[in-house]
Nucleic acid binder design. Structure first.
Lengths: 150, 150
DNA sequence: TATTGTTATACTCTATAACTATA
DNA sequence: TATAGTTATAGAGTATAACAATA
């Protein structure tokens, strides 16, 4: 394995733009894995995305926010998942306008198969030492926290 | 701002699965930003994705690989981008079966507008100290390298 | 009045299979 | 024979606008 010089060793400053490019590279690779995994399970990308979001029941509107699509799309999307027996609509008892989308047992199994493909760390992450895992974890938590800060 | 205890301070081991979950969180946020940015520029997600890939000219087939979709989809996708004057088909001089997709001046400008929305680091990344930038950069390069290792 | 979810419409995406041109 | 790209087709995704039921 070739030794890779770090920016620290070279003495150059690492810009946030450079780090962002590395992230975009990983994003792209993950997106391709996601699309391939969805196709293997006969799910369209949006369907696979919805299934992954449904860790717990969600109102239609919240699903639309998470999928970053219009409310009206969710109706058809859930119609088709429902027709395949993967989800069910559960009217809310608090607000009769709201319907919660819930995974069926079949839906949960399919979600698990999807997670087996995209929910596990890649080799690159697994090969990090315990100390590096901790470093990376701390840095990512910091990024997520500061991204969320209004 | 509340102080956040790190795993190091707590003394627990950080698993690669935990780190992967943090990455998936960031991936979801980035995907939503991407979809919103594409909609703002009147681009369908696949069109925006293609534009971003076209930093340099690419054969149709390679674009299909990068977009993780069937070859036949790229034909229609590029048809529509071409109809909007964003890209052009350039027959290869080496292999007359191959066509390279090239951005027009208009296409480049639109790509730049897209990059202005998703090609810049988020606040969380910008707020990392120079030392943290270097740490994160080194860790991500290591992950990308080991992911790529056959 | 505002919000949740649906419907109707028009256009785009996506995979499959069959095809043409070139290698 | 194999590969690059296209065409045709069918089903799904997507935004917009208009709508009913509920808040």
């Amino acid at each position: 394995m070739a030794r890779v010089e770090t920016t620290a060793e070279i003495g150059e400053a690492e810009s946030s733009a450079e780090v962002w490019e590395l992230f975009r590279t990983l994003f792209g690779q993950h997106r391709r894995r996601f699309l391939i995994a969805a196709a293997e399970l006969d799910l369209h990308p949006a369907q696979a995305g919805a299934l992954l979001q449904l860790d717990s029941p969600l109102p239609m509107t919240e699903l639309a926010v998470l999928l970053a699509c219009d409310n009206s799309n969710v109706t058809g999307l859930i119609d088709r998942l429902e027709a395949r027996g993967l989800v069910a609509r559960q009217p809310s008892s608090e607000d009769r306008r709201v319907k919660h989308v819930v995974l069926t047992a079949t839906g949960r199994r399919l979600r698990e198969r999807m997670l087996a493909r995209v929910g596990r760390p890649t080799r690159g992450f697994e090969r990090l030492s315990p100390d590096e895992q901790r470093q990376l974890g701390d840095l990512l938590r910091q990024v997520i926290r500061d991204d969320a800060a209004a």
